[in-house]
Nucleic acid binder design. Structure first.
Length: 294
RNA sequence: GGCGGGUUGCCCGAGUGGUCAAAGGGAGCAGACUGUAAAUCUGUCGCGAGAGCUACGGAGGUUCGAACCCUCCACCCGCCA
């Protein structure tokens, strides 16, 4: 199995084609139907006959698509691919999704309680943290008092099962070859800007407008982050001109990709391809070796 | 030509005699994060290991002490002509 840490490109398709594989997307936004241009989904043509899984499997709504749901669906897809004697290729840059599969995260069964969350959400960070501390002071000490979202989840878990779990043992289910791509900062910037310009040409603004017309609220748009967050702001008149929008968004994407790097570079087993060389060839060799070809 | 306002660190912007290397924001850089992860959150941010050095348009001056007061110069901006 391979994973591509940054940039979609068609490396995944190329490899899947070469090794009789199928793709399992690890992209937290391509999960959603209707987010196409802004997430850079491949067109059927670009997929070149390679089956893609975990794309367009959820609707954008108030209820988020959780990591646990992702894991469950991904496991199912991978098992299915393997059962048909084909090779699964995970592709995508959502670090947490990749890790949940690669390391075999196990989750506390504490499903989100949207009602309760609304109440907690209304609290001030300090108050919220105090609530958690009242349940379990040592656990509260591990959380940043200002990070509401994570504290809310901790409270949710405690209220659901009575206590906060200690270290949960992972159960990796597969063996992985992990491949990653990186570029020098200036190159990365350039690629991001070019890609953004291309998406705009492809009608990204209209896509966002359509979503909003269809009832996706500005709050939800905002929670989707990056393109959709900034697009909503643009559509709602939050930008004096397109240039400022473009700069803001491309910077945000750049920052995000740095965060991705920060995440993946902790992933010890990842093989970073030399992007100044023929990385497609390098990737192909690595995969061949991993799969035991020659 | 006259009167008034302005010039602050990469950018925006606060600061009107000491506690100012200078609030705050942005950008940059680094990082955390096991049920929203393109999310959420944090640290750092003039140079130097340090003593210290360099900085608030420029040059002088007042003062024990100036980004803050005075003088001249430069540029920008309003109103009058």
């Amino acid at each position: 199995m391979g994973t591509n840490a940054s940039g979609k490109s068609s490396l995944g398709v190329t490899l899947a084609k070469a090794f009789d594989g199928e793709i399992v997307s690890a992209d937290s936004r391509q999960i959603y139907r209707g987010l196409d241009i802004g997430t850079g989904k491949l067109t059927p043509d670009e997929m070149a006959g390679v089956p893609h899984h975990l794309i367009d499997v959820a609707d954008v709504s108030e209820q988020f698509f959780s990591l646990a749901e992702y894991q469950e669906m991904a496991y199912r897809a991978i098992d299915d691919i393997v059962a048909r004697h084909r090779a699964p290729f995970m592709v995508g840059g959502t670090g947490l999704y990749v890790r949940a599969i690669v390391e075999g995260y196990r989750f506390e069964t504490a499903p989100p309680d949207y009602e309760r969350r609304r109440q907690l959400e209304a609290m001030e960070p300090a108050e919220l943290w105090a609530t958690l501390a009242a349940y379990d002071a040592p656990v509260a000490g591990r959380f940043d008092p200002r990070n509401k979202r994570r504290i809310i989840r901790a409270i949710e878990i405690i209220e659901h099962r009575g206590s906060y779990p200690g270290q949960i043992r992972n159960e990796p289910r597969f063996e992985f070859l992990q491949l990653g791509l990186t570029w020098p900062p200036e190159v990365l910037r350039k690629r991001i800007e070019d890609r953004l310009a291309r998406r705009l040409d492809e009608g990204m603004v209209d896509e966002a407008r359509r979503l909003m017309d269809r009832g996706v609220t500005p709050e939800i748009m905002d929670s989707l982050g990056l393109e959709y967050r900034y697009l909503a702001k643009l559509i709602l008149g939050g930008y004096p001109d397109r240039n400022e929008f473009f700069e803001d968004l491309s910077r945000a994407i750049y920052r995000f990709s740095r965060r991705q790097m920060s995440w993946f570079s902790k992933q010890g087993a990842i093989v970073w391809l030399d992007t100044s060389g023929d990385y497609v060839a390098e990737a192909t060799e690595r995969v061949a070796a991993f799969l035991g070809y020659r």
